[in-house]
């Protein structure tokens, strides 16, 4: 996956074929299909996206170790990054978290009352924690920047929640793999686990974009103000 070479001339269908993981990026950006034969640059022009930023987001989805350089990032990308992150927050709240919850309910319907109760509460707390964290970010950083950044954004505030969310995602996976009573059928358990791992990895990419794209852009913006 890390070996996909991106260029503005690359056709969108080639891009998706090389890295199907990007479908979730298209979905949250609400980019219209079909793509026909258009290239990355043509699609970005059509839909009003910054090509450089779009390729940066693709690269960070394909290889989670990819870190964009300072030179790649320009201040004018900030509103678009914020719009992407807001869309991503909605995607988790409206799509991924409810989808995972549905699979969890299927698993829980095969469990005893006590397991059902504690696991549902754990997942509900987890989903609630993620959503409150998003709301706080939107309030403390996104809205602040959209209004012209009248004061410094406190990013350090979010380091701990990012680590916490990652821990809790791993915890759910460990509990389902190791401790869920045998009564839950393996196929349902696997569906649920696929969701949990997908959610965990996606949240990691999201957090990387906030740390390695949003944060330096905000710092740049505040310096030049």
């Amino acid at each position: 996956m890390g070996s996909v070479a991106l260029s503005p001339e690359m056709k969108i269908y080639e891009l998706i074929d090389a890295a199907p993981i990007l479908l979730s990026l298209f979905s949250r950006l609400d980019i219209h299909l079909p793509f026909g034969d258009i290239s990355i640059a043509e699609m970005c022009r059509r839909d009003g996206y910054n090509t450089q930023l779009f390729m940066m987001l693709c690269a960070m989805h394909i290889d989670s170790r990819y870190r964009p350089s300072q030179e790649e990032m320009t201040e004018d990308m900030l509103p678009e990054v914020i719009a992407y992150l807001r869309a991503s927050h909605r995607y988790y709240a409206e799509r991924m978290l409810p989808h995972t919850a549905r699979h969890l309910e299927e698993v829980l319907s095969h469990c005893d009352d006590l397991s059902e109760r504690v696991l549902r509460r754990f997942y509900d707390d987890y989903a609630h924690y993620i959503k409150s964290h998003f709301e706080e970010e939107e309030r403390e950083i996104f809205t602040l920047m959209e209004r012209g950044g009248e004061r410094d954004a406190n990013f350090a505030l979010f380091d701990m929640p990012h680590a916490d969310i990652d821990d809790r995602s791993n915890d759910i996976a460990s509990l389902i793999v190791k401790s869920l009573p045998e009564s839950a059928p393996t196929s349902l358990r696997c569906d649920m686990l696929k969701d949990v791992y997908e959610l965990r990895d996606d949240l990691r990419r999201h957090s990387n974009i906030e740390t390695y794209v949003l944060r330096p852009l905000v710092v740049k913006y505040l310096k030049q103000r």
């Binding site: 006590l114 696991l119 754990f122 916490d164 821990d167 509990l175 869920l180 009573p181």
Partner: peptide, 22 residues
């Protein structure tokens, strides 16, 4: 040993493994 870090997760682990009743 459990692969679980959060206190909430450890609590669920303790319940599921019947080390504690709810």
């Amino acid at each position: 040993k459990t692969g679980i870090r959060s206190v909430a997760g450890l609590t669920v682990y303790a319940v599921l493994n019947k080390f504690i009743d709810s």
